[in-house]
Amino acid sequence: MLSFFNILLLLQETETRVDLMKRAAVNPDLSKFLVIGALLFIIGVAGVLTRRNIIVIFMSIELILNAANLNFIAFSRYLSAMGNVNAVAGQIFAVFVIVVAAAEAAIGLGIVIALYRNKETIWVDEIDLLKW
């Protein structure tokens, strides 16, 4: 099945821009992975900056970490395709990111619990003790 498209491609000698785009869309490459990762990252950052609910902010932070993971895995795949013997390092990195994210989520939610017990609120704009 894969070879079908490849042969189609090979039959075409010249490529226009639209063709390039079509090929890019049909054959997503490393850059597409990275784009998706960047978009997820930005969505996560926007969530951190805009939401009032502290739990949602945490979830946005998980989005960010996830996007970073995606980047790692994408590069690992790319490098293994390129023949780099250390390509598996990306996946190792991703493992540890997941570990850290889990630990961080646990601690952070513990803090949220403690904060909620003291201030009875989960809205971050009400937690402004450091305000001048």
Partner: peptide
């Protein structure tokens, strides 16, 4: 979202992750 990303991982040949 996370499951979708997991699927993307599989597509990236990182099944274990």
């Amino acid at each position: 979202s996370l499951i979708s990303v997991a699927a993307l991982f599989i597509l990236a040949r990182a099944e274990f992750i």
